[in-house]
């Protein structure tokens, strides 16, 4: 039972490994990607027509292809999302009133309900795919810096960057503690003992991580940390290039098309 599930923590933190040269998505300025993601989500949540939402999902899939997202992993993540929504989606045809199209087991399913279920499924998936493509494929530290340049509060960005770091620290610490528990024949099973043991495990995890954080903080102060993260490889400060403007324009046209279809 790894803390970060099937995916390796390093893989998450380093972003997708480029196979042959950087993908088109990677050559975009991180700020462009953040702005596009926000605009896309806003548009998708606003429009209501099925055709527009289908187009939006298509655009998101295109972006995923540009970002060279791994197909299997992406599908698995979407499946997890579907698992969450399945109750809402399955119930909608029966809870929305309207023209009855089918009556499985005596419950009336309405066309309006089916339509609304489709709308929700399309929207949720379009936004999820777009997020994974635009932001999930990016090194999260770069994402943090991009957010900072876009005017996110400095403390929030610090918190963001420290959190990324501690996810990795926690993961290692967790594995160590779990190994110790396994060496003492602990096996997860439903029951007070298991739940309490995991409670102690997390308590200890927090104590250890925090003590480590305090040591790091002290060391950073010794080296003159003033609350800023200077970066040696901070090349994001350039103004947006031709690629950003070009792709921005293409995206704007596509979003306008989605809105046009939807209103």
């Amino acid at each position: 039972m790894s803390l970060l599930g099937p995916c390796r923590c390093d893989a998450i933190l380093d972003g997708a490994e480029p196979q042959d040269g950087p993908s088109l998505m990677e050559r975009l300025d991180p700020r462009t990607r953040v702005i596009l993601a926000v605009l896309f989500a806003l548009v998708v949540v606003t429009v209501d027509a099925l055709a527009a939402l289908a187009l939006a999902l298509g655009v998101a899939v295109l972006a995923a292809a540009l970002a060279r997202l791994p197909l299997g992993l992406t599908l698995r993540r979407l499946l997890a999302l579907e698992g969450f929504m399945v109750a809402v989606l399955l119930l909608l045809p029966f809870t929305v009133e309207g023209r009855v199209v089918a009556e499985p087991l005596g419950f009336a399913a309405s066309a309006e309900g089916l339509r609304q279920a489709c709308v929700i499924a399309l929207r949720a998936n379009a936004v999820a795919v777009a997020l994974l493509a635009l932001l999930g494929s990016m090194d999260v530290v770069r994402l943090g810096r991009a957010l900072s340049r876009l005017g996110a509060p400095r403390r929030l960005v610090h918190l963001f960057l420290f959190t990324i770091r501690y996810i990795d620290v926690l993961d290692r610490e967790y594995r160590r503690l779990r190994l110790a528990m396994r060496a003492r024949a602990f096996r997860p099973a439903a029951g007070l003992h298991c739940w309490r043991s995991v409670g102690y495990l997390f308590g200890m995890l927090m104590v250890r991580s925090l003590e480590r954080a305090e040591r790091i903080d002290a060391a950073m102060r010794c080296r003159g940390f003033t609350g800023q993260f200077p970066s040696l490889e901070d090349d994001d400060i350039r103004p947006p290039g031709a690629l950003d403007w070009g792709l921005g324009a293409v995206s704007a046209v596509m979003l306008a098309l989605v809105v046009g279809l939807g209103v």
């Binding site: 599930g5 403390r155 918190l159 959190t163 996810i167 926690l170 997390f202 925090l210 954080a213 305090e214």
Partner: peptide, 17 residues
Amino acid sequence: VPRVAVLSAVLFVASLI
């Protein structure tokens, strides 16, 4: 900030366990 970040990280991983 580090203390809060530890908790954010814990919250992040909580739903994976």
